[in-house]
Design a protein around this nucleic acid. Structure first.
Length: 888
DNA sequence: GCGGACTGCTTACCT
DNA sequence: ACAGGTAAGCAGTCCGCG
C-alpha cells in the first residue's frame, strides 16, 4: 500500500536528519522543507480516498470541511496504518422540524439561508407520544448551516419565526449523525470495495448464548444477539507510540503556558509498541554535558534546530496509527502546535488540530490517558478505585510499580543525560499504562467504542452520560424513532413525587439499614446482582414507559410514588440496559473465569465484563442527571423506589424465615449466622416473588459494627480484612493514626474464635495506648501528624465558610498562593496558637496541639473499640466506664 | 461576653 | 458534569443568661 513516493521522501527526510545543520540556525526552508514535502505527499497519497481495503477496523470519524463530507478513519492491522475513507453515499447534514414542508418553502427567512439543500417530509415514530409523526427534514450542504454558527443557523432561526416551532436532532455532531444513520459499528472490521463501504461478515451468535437466553422475548433476544456480534468480533493487533516532551521553564513549579509557547522544546521521547525508542534532544549553548547516541535501548538524536526536532516528532505522529500521551490535550500536543507556528511552520503543515477541548490528530488516533483515567466511572468501576490522584506518578506507581524519575532541580538545569533519562521515563510510563495487562486500557477503549458507537477519541475522553446518550441515539435512528429533545421529555415527565433526605436533592434514593452494633461470627452477605439495571429490565423502565400516555396503564403503579409504567410497549432503555446486564452476568462474567478457554479469549471476556460494569453502573444515575440528553427524573426516581421496595420486602421475608439481618445498604443484606437452608430459601423467594437474582456476595468469619451506617470491618475466613468507611483508612487521616489503625486490623485478622478476642483486646489496648503515649511525648513527626486534604475549589471561591485547610493556606504570601488551586493537595497540622492550623511546611513539632490530636485518636478508634467492649478512657487511664458486652 | 443548640459547609466515603 | 445517603469536623448564627 505504501507508495514509492512516500519512501522517496522518507529517505530524503532521513538524510536531512542524519546530518543536523552544522552552521547553527540555517535557512528556514532547508529545515522544514523536507518535512512539508513529505507530509503533503503522504496526505495526497496514503491519506487520499482509499478505494480498496480489506479487513480494516473503523476507529474514528470526522467531518472534512474542504470536501464537505464525512470522513472515516480505518486501522489496517495488516500494515498497521490508518486509512481515510471519504463518504461516497452523498449523505448530508440535516435536522427535523414540525413545520410542514409547504410552509417552510414559503418562509423567506428560511429559504434564504445559505447552504440549505432541500426539504423532505419523513415519517418518524415518537416514543414519547407513542404514535407516528410526520416531520420535515431540513437538509443542508454543511453542518454549520444546521447549527453551530454564532447566529443564523437553522436551529436558531426556526424558533424565532414561529413560536411553536420544534427542532429535533439539530445538536448532534455531524460525524455522529453519519455513524447513526449508516448504522456504523465502531471498532469493527469493514471492507472497502471499489470505494464502497461493506461491513465484514459478523461472528454469528454462539450456540451456547442462544441456549442460555432461550426463554427471553423476541425483541430482547434481538438485542442480546446484536451485542454478542459486536463483542465477539475479532480484535486487531495494535501498534502505537507514547510521546512526551519537556519544555524549558522559567521558574520552578511553573508549567509553561502551551498557548504562549514562548519557551524552547528541549527534549522529546517516543516509546513504540514495535520496540522503537527515541530520545530527541536540543543542543543548547550552555554546557549541558557530553553528547551520546544511546540511552539504554533508546536511540538518541541531537538537534541544533528546534523546529527540526519538532518536525521529527511530527513524523512519528503521522507514521504511527495510535498516539498515546498523558495530558497531551492540554500540554504536549497543544504546545507543539503553537510552538511550531511560532517557529514559522504553516498551520496546514502541522499534523495536529486543536479544538476547544482536544488535541486531535487528523491522520492518526490520539488517546490522552490523563482524560481516560480522570473519568470517575473508569476510576471507580473499571479499576476499583485503585488510584485516587490522577497524575502520572500515582497511577503508574499503582499499576506498574514504578514512578517518575525524581528531580531535585528545574528541567532546564538538567544536563543532557539527566534530561533524557527523565523524559524517556515519562513516555515509558505512558506507554506501559496503555500496554499493561495485554493492552488492557486500549482494549477497554475499543470495547467501549463498540458498545457506545463512539469514536475512540471521544469515548476515551467523555463521560458516562455521553456514552449512554450515544448508544441510545444509535438505537433511535436504527428504529426510525424521533429523538426527543430534553425540554420535551421534561415537559411531559418532569415531576417527582418523593422527598429526598438530603436537602437540595431531587428525589429519595436508597435506604440504609440501621446496623446492630457488636461482633458477629459467620456473617453471610447477600446482594441483588446489579440491582438497578435489573429493576430497569424487570419493571420495563424507560423514558417512554414511565408515565406513558395510555389511560389503561395508569393503575400499574410504582411503590411509594404516583408514577405508573406502561404495559403495552417494551421500553427501549429496559431492552438495552436489560440485555447488557444479562449478558454481563450470565455470559461474560462466567466466561471470564472459565479455565477451559484460551488465555487470550478469557482476557478479552474479562475486559468486556468490566466495560459492561462501567456502563451498567451509570445507567440509572444518568436519568437523574440534568445534563443528560434523555434526562427523565421519574425514571431515576422509580428505579430507586423499586430498589427500596426490593430490599425492604426481602428483609421482611428474612425475618419471617428466622434470619437475623444485622445490616443492609441499598442492595445488600448482612445475615447473622444463617443456615444454608435459610439462605437458599431467601434466594429462591426473591427469584420467584420479586423476579430478581439474589447472590451470596461474601462470607465473613466475623464482622464488627458500631452504631454507624456505612462503617464496618469484615474478616473473611482466610483472615483477609475488609474495612469500610472507617476514619482509620480515610485519605485525609494523619499517617500516625492510619499506621496504628493498620496494626489493630492485623490483630483482628488473626482472631479465629470468641476466645481469641480476649488476647486480641489486650493487644489492641496496648497498641492504642502506645499511640497515645507517643503523641503525648511529641514523638511523632510533622509528616505523621499531617492532615492531607484535597482543595475542592480555588481559594477565593470559599465565601461561605473557611475550612481549616483553607485557613492554613491563607497564611501563605500572595505570590505562593497562585500556585494552589482546585485539586491541589494540602497538608496541614493542628497547632495551639491562633488560627489553630499551619501548613506542614511552616510548622514545628513543639507547636502541635496534642489535645486536639488525642480527640482524633479517640474518634478513630472508638469506631472499633465500641464494638469490642473497650472504652477509650480505660486506655488513657481516665476513670473506668461501664463495659458493654455484645456477645450473646 | 460566652457557651450550647442548631444549621450549613466541606471532604471523604458507601452502594 | 451518573445518583442519593452517611460520617466527621468545623464555621457561623441564634438565643439565653437577671
Amino acid at each position: 500500500m505504501e507508495s514509492r513516493l512516500e519512501d522517496f521522501f522518507k529517505e530524503k527526510l532521513d538524510e536531512a536528519e542524519e546530518k543536523p545543520s552544522s552552521e547553527g540556525r540555517g535557512n528556514q526552508e532547508d529545515v522544514t522543507g523536507n518535512w512539508v514535502r513529505y507530509f503533503r505527499s503522504l496526505v495526497e497519497d496514503r491519506y487520499a480516498n482509499s478505494r480498496n481495503l480489506k479487513n480494516v477496523y473503523l476507529f474514528s470519524a470526522s467531518y472534512d470541511g474542504d470536501k464537505r463530507c464525512a470522513v472515516l478513519k480505518f486501522y489496517n492491522p495488516e500494515d498497521k496504518k490508518i486509512y481515510l475513507w471519504y463518504d461516497t453515499t452523498g449523505h448530508k447534514p440535516y435536522c427535523l422540524t414540525n413545520i410542514p414542508q409547504e410552509e417552510l418553502e414559503n418562509i423567506p427567512e428560511v429559504k434564504g439561508v445559505k447552504g440549505l439543500d432541500h426539504f423532505e417530509t419523513v415519517e418518524k415514530f415518537s416514543l414519547l407520544l407513542d404514535k407516528p409523526l410526520r416531520v420535515t427534514k431540513i437538509v443542508a450542504q454543511d453542518p454549520l448551516t444546521i447549527g453551530g454558527k454564532p447566529s443564523g443557523s437553522i436551529r436558531d432561526i426556526l424558533p424565532k419565526i414561529r413560536h411553536d416551532a420544534k427542532v429535533w436532532e439539530a445538536d448532534i455532531k455531524y460525524y455522529e449523525c453519519y455513524i447513526y444513520d449508516l448504522g456504523l459499528d465502531l471498532g469493527l472490521p469493514y471492507n472497502i470495495e471499489d470505494g464502497k463501504l461493506v461491513k465484514n461478515k459478523l461472528t454469528s451468535i454462539n450456540f451456547e448464548v442462544e441456549k442460555l437466553f432461550a426463554d427471553e422475548s423476541k425483541d430482547f433476544f434481538q438485542y442480546l444477539k446484536s451485542w454478542v456480534e459486536l463483542l465477539e468480533a475479532p480484535l486487531p493487533s495494535l501498534k502505537f507510540i507514547a510521546l512526551d516532551i519537556e519544555v524549558e521553564s522559567p521558574s520552578l513549579d511553573k508549567v509553561p503556558d502551551p498557548r504562549e509557547a514562548s519557551h524552547r522544546v528541549i527534549c522529546a521521547s517516543i516509546v513504540a509498541s514495535d520496540g522503537v525508542k527515541y530520545v530527541l534532544l536540543l543542543r543548547r549553548g550552555e554546557a549541558k554535558g557530553e553528547e551520546f547516541d544511546r540511552l539504554d535501548d533508546a536511540k538518541v538524536e541531537f538537534y541544533d534546530d528546534e523546529l527540526q526536532l519538532i518536525c521529527r516528532i511530527f513524523r512519528f505522529l503521522v507514521e504511527y496509527p495510535i498516539v498515546v500521551t498523558f495530558n497531551g490535550d492540554e500540554f504536549d500536543l497543544k504546545y507543539l502546535y503553537h510552538r511550531a507556528q511560532k517557529l514559522g511552520l504553516q498551520k496546514e503543515d502541522i499534523p495536529i488540530q486543536l479544538t476547544r477541548e482536544y488535541a486531535y490528530l487528523p491522520y492518526s488516533i490520539h488517546i490522552d490517558l490523563y482524560r481516560f483515567f480522570f473519568n470517575k466511572a473508569i476510576q471507580v468501576y473499571a479499576f476499583d478505585q485503585k488510584y485516587r490522584d490522577v497524575n502520572l506518578q500515582d497511577i503508574s506507581t499503582v499499576f506498574l510499580g514504578i514512578g517518575k524519575v525524581e528531580l531535585d532541580k528545574n528541567v532546564s538545569e538538567l544536563d543532557y543525560r539527566q534530561l533524557a533519562v527523565y523524559c524517556l521515563r515519562d513516555s515509558e510510563l505512558t506507554f506501559k499504562l496503555a500496554s499493561f495487562d495485554g493492552n488492557l486500557v486500549l482494549k477497554l477503549i475499543i470495547a467501549l467504542a463498540r458498545i457506545t458507537r463512539m469514536i475512540l477519541e471521544d469515548v476515551s475522553r467523555q463521560s458516562v452520560s455521553n456514552w449512554i446518550k450515544s448508544l441510545m441515539y444509535w438505537e433511535h435512528r436504527k428504529n426510525s424513532y424521533l429523538i426527543p429533545s430534553s425540554e420535551e421529555i421534561l415537559a411531559v415527565k418532569g415531576s417527582t413525587s418523593t422527598h429526598a433526605i438530603i436537602k437540595g436533592k431531587k428525589y429519595r434514593g436508597a435506604i440504609v439499614i440501621e446496623p446492630q452494633p457488636g461482633i458477629n461470627f459467620n456473617v453471610v452477605v447477600l446482594d441483588f446482582n446489579s440491582l438497578y439495571p435489573s429493576i430497569i429490565k424487570r419493571w420495563n423502565l424507560s423514558y417512554e414507559t414511565v408515565r406513558c400516555p395510555h389511560e389503561e396503564c395508569k393503575d400499574n403503579l410504582i411503590p411509594e410514588t404516583n408514577h405508573w409504567v406502561c404495559r403495552k410497549r417494551q421500553g427501549l432503555t429496559s431492552l438495552v440496559i436489560g440485555s447488557l446486564r444479562d449478558l454481563r452476568v450470565r455470559w461474560y462474567k462466567v466466561k471470564a473465569k472459565d479455565k477451559t478457554l484460551p488465555e487470550e479469549v478469557r482476557v478479552w471476556y474479562s475486559v468486556v465484563q468490566r466495560t459492561l460494569k462501567v456502563i451498567l453502573n451509570a445507567s440509572y444515575g444518568v436519568f437523574g442527571a440534568e445534563h443528560f440528553a434523555l434526562y427523565c427524573p421519574p425514571v431515576a426516581e422509580a428505579t430507586a423506589s423499586i430498589g427500596r421496595y426490593a430490599i425492604k420486602t426481602t428483609i421482611q421475608k428474612a425475618w419471617e424465615l428466622g434470619i437475623e439481618v444485622i445490616y443492609g445498604d441499598t442492595d445488600s443484606m448482612f445475615l447473622r449466622n444463617p443456615s444454608e437452608n435459610q439462605v437458599e430459601a431467601l434466594m429462591e423467594w426473591s427469584r420467584n416473588v420479586l423476579g430478581m437474582e439474589l447472590d451470596i456476595d461474601k462470607q465473613y468469619r466475623y464482622s464488627v459494627f458500631s452504631t454507624r451506617k456505612k462503617n464496618y470491618i469484615g474478616v473473611y475466613h482466610d483472615g483477609n480484612v475488609e474495612i469500610k468507611g472507617l476514619t482509620g483508612k480515610k485519605r485525609n487521616t494523619p499517617e500516625f493514626l492510619k499506621k496504628t489503625f493498620a496494626e489493630m486490623i492485623k490483630i483482628l485478622g488473626e482472631v479465629k474464635s470468641k476466645d481469641d478476642f480476649d488476647k486480641a483486646r489486650e493487644k489492641i489496648k496496648s497498641i492504642v495506648k502506645d499511640c497515645y503515649v507517643k503523641l503525648k511525648n511529641r514523638q511523632y513527626s510533622l509528616e505523621e501528624l499531617a492532615f492531607t486534604v484535597v482543595l475542592g475549589k480555588d481559594i477565593e471561591d470559599y465565601n461561605k465558610t473557611i475550612p481549616q485547610h483553607v485557613k492554613a493556606l491563607k497564611l501563605l504570601p500572595e505570590k505562593e498562593k497562585v500556585d494552589v488551586g482546585a485539586g491541589s493537595v494540602i497538608r496541614y497540622v493542628k497547632v495551639r496558637r491562633d488560627p489553630g492550623v499551619k501548613l506542614i511546611t511552616h510548622a514545628k513539632v513543639d507547636e502541635i496541639d496534642t489535645e486536639k490530636y488525642v480527640e482524633h485518636i479517640q474518634t478513630t478508634f472508638e469506631q472499633v473499640l465500641d464494638a469490642l467492649g473497650i472504652s477509650f478512657n480505660e486506655i488513657t487511664g481516665a476513670p473506668r466506664e461501664a463495659k458493654l458486652e455484645f456477645f450473646q
